[in-house]
Structures are given as C-alpha cells and as structure tokens.
Design a protein around this nucleic acid. Structure first.
Length: 346
DNA sequence: AAACAGGCCAACCGCCCCCCT
DNA sequence: AAGGGGGGCGGTTGGCCTGTT
C-alpha cells in the first residue's frame, strides 16, 4: 500500500543539518535554482533525501525567512486566521511574511493551542461561579515547566490531540476554597446593562470587562493549577473582552481570541443577559453565560464564512470587495475571504 | 547536584494534489 | 483521458533544553 518512498533512504543521513550541509545546499541552489528536489542531493553531493533538502531550504535557508520573536500582532493574526482557516498552515503562513508553515504550526502547537485550551478550561473549571479571566496571564499560565503533574502522561502535548473534554465539576464537589462562596450572583440589572450599552447611541461600548473576583485561595488539588493570581494567591482572573457591532454582526472578542459572532442583537443580549455582578463597570458572566461562551468557541467558522458569502450586500459593507473571486477554486475563495477578513473593512 | 518531567522545535513521514507526458 | 512523478502539506516524532523537585 502507498507510494514508494520519495528516495532510497539507505545510506542517507538523517537528523540535524550541519553548517557544512547548509552551505552545500545554499550554494547549489544559488547556482542552479530551486526545484528538482529528487535529484538535487545527488547533484549537490549531499547524503540527504530530496524532501529533506527542500524542507531545509524552505524553512531555514531561503532568503527572507524570519525565525523566532513572533510579535503580538503576528500572534493575534495567527489566532484569527486559525479560527477561520483551521490547520491550513501554509495558507496562514502566506499572510505572515517571512514565516513558514512549519514555524507557525510549531508555534500553534506549543503556545497558542495550549492557551486556547487553558482559556476553555478556565471557563469550565470555575463554572459554578462568576468568572474573571485575565487573558494576558494565560500565556504565563500555560508556561509551567518542569516538575511532575500527577496524572499527566509524558509528551501528552505532542500526541495526537483529541479535543480535551472540559473539566466538569459537580456543584457538590469540593470547589476551590472560597471561590464559589465568595461570589454571589446578583440579578442582572439596568446598571449592569448600562455598562454594556452606550445610552446615547444605543450602541455597545468598545470595551466590556468580563470579570470575576474570588477572595479564596486556589485549591490544592490542582483544579486551578494555571489560573492562580501570582500576587495574592487567590483565584482572581481578569479578562478584557470587547463587544463590537460591525456590519450588522455582534462580535465578542478577547484580546487573544474571538469568542463569538452573533447575527442579531438579541443573541448578543442573550449572552449578556446572563451577565451578573456589575461593579465599577465590570460585568461578570454566570455559569449559563459561560456555557454559551464555550459553545461559541466551537463555532463552525467555515460555515460562518459560507454564510457571509451568501449574504446580499448590506450598504456595501458586508460583502468583500470582489465576491466574484469566490467563483474560483476553494483556495481562491479562502484567499479572498481572508483578504477581506484582514482588511480594514472588518 | 542529580534526576525528572514537560516544553520546544527541527526534522521526518506519508498522504494528496497538480502537472506533465 | 489516464497514469506517474514531483512537490506541497499537515501530522507526528524524537532529542535537546530548562525549570522543578
């Protein structure tokens, strides 16, 4: 079954490339150009598989390749594009000049996916309380290194990852001390709503803080291992989320992730109507709200994209500039959609 | 200081698509 | 039009690094 290997592997070198090999490959391509990867190793005098040469060239030796130091802007872009495109790393990389699909894939697997999962765990792990999520702390939260965490298997982060089951916690289970008891859900109030809606324009403010404060310490059973406030050792988390109305759609965003897009105000209000605890302009979301947010994280983004393409133009704002491009291949459609997504119009 | 454990990332594997003949 | 090869792509592996115990 399957194709024959791309080259005879017997006698070929594997593993890390040496500086000498890099020089040979770079010099050869400088003289003869890219391509003909199968015959390149033999012609260049390298004991490497052609595919290995190609990978080395594209990911490391090619002009313009940038490595490391992924900026916040790039980080945001990767998250945004991944939400739309999924694991189409080459397509994502094409929108990040100098970045390769392999680097973005690695970055996602080792940084961002963990943040997203942590973000989701936080929602669920404290779901019997109102919540405050500090997105800015999530990266540090996912950075725990060293030491054994009971019950974790080695290399779990690199094994094939089924979507992790959310941590469910029955109400009668022992919750982090003080977490559940210290936060009382208050009925949704006009005061809370006023934190969301601009009374002058009946439009949402640009910024809503979704917050939760717990006075108690984190539990010792590891239930909240990654969300402890490093300063006062309580379970305080804070997240700055925004709600925007754009092109007839209501978007709920955090600084790292798009939480959801709703088509009409009632859906957005349904989410916010589950908000509780308004103080100093902060709005918390109760467990019901958290469930809704968690559902929104599972949004069918391709379906959303298709939905947008199917919409008639609304005041010239909803459609991308060149919807005709969608008549091409699937990749053309995606390219056009991504271009539009990244344009100022969005 | 040594052992341990997870993080990080370069590289490999194998499937799939596209293009050429 | 069909088949085969080359190249592209996403998933996965494995080893080094580093923080924790």
């Amino acid at each position: 079954m399957g194709r024959a290997p791309c080259c005879e592997k017997v006698g070929l070198k594997r593993g890390r490339w040496t500086a000498e090999e890099d020089d040979i490959l770079a010099n050869y391509i400088a003289k003869h150009g890219e391509g003909s990867w199968r015959s390149l190793p033999k012609n260049a005098g390298l004991l490497r598989c052609g595919k290995s040469c190609r990978l080395r060239w594209i990911n490391y030796l090619r002009d313009g390749v940038r490595r490391g130091n992924i900026s916040k802007e790039e980080d945001d872009l990767i998250v945004k594009l991944h939400a739309t495109l999924g694991n189409r790393w080459s397509l994502i990389a094409s929108h990040l000049p100098g970045r390769t699909d392999n680097e973005i894939k690695n970055y996602w697997n080792s940084h961002l996916s963990r943040q997203i999962h942590t973000f989701r765990r936080i929602y669920t792990a404290v779901s019997d309380t109102a919540i405050t999520v500090d997105v800015n702390k999530l990266s540090a939260a996912g950075k725990r290194r060293g030491g054994r965490t009971p019950g974790q298997s080695p290399r779990s982060s690199t094994k094939k990852k089924p979507v992790p089951e959310p941590i469910t916690k029955a109400k009668d289970e022992s919750s982090p001390a003080g977490a559940a008891s210290s936060v009382s859900s208050s009925p949704h109030s006009d005061e809370a709503r006023s934190a969301v809606v601009d009374p002058d324009q009946n439009q949402p403010n640009n910024s809503i803080s979704v917050s939760h404060t717990s006075d108690g310490p984190c539990s010792e059973d590891g239930t909240w291992p990654m969300v402890m406030d490093p300063v006062d050792q309580t379970g305080v988390l804070e997240a700055n989320c925004t709600v925007d109305q754009q092109m007839g759609l209501w978007e709920v965003n955090s600084s790292m992730n798009q939480i959801g897009i709703m088509e009409d105000e009632s859906e957005m209000q349904a989410l916010l109507s589950s908000s509780v605890t308004a103080e100093n302009g902060l709005v918390g979301i109760d467990p019901g709200g958290l469930s809704q947010v968690d559902d929104l994280l599972d949004m069918d983004w391709e379906g959303f994209a298709s939905h947008l393409w199917d919409q008639p133009a609304q005041n010239g704002l909803l459609q991308p500039a060149e919807p005709q491009a969608a008549k091409g291949s699937e990749s053309d459609e995606l390219e056009s959609f991504v271009s539009w997504l990244l344009s100022d119009a969005c």
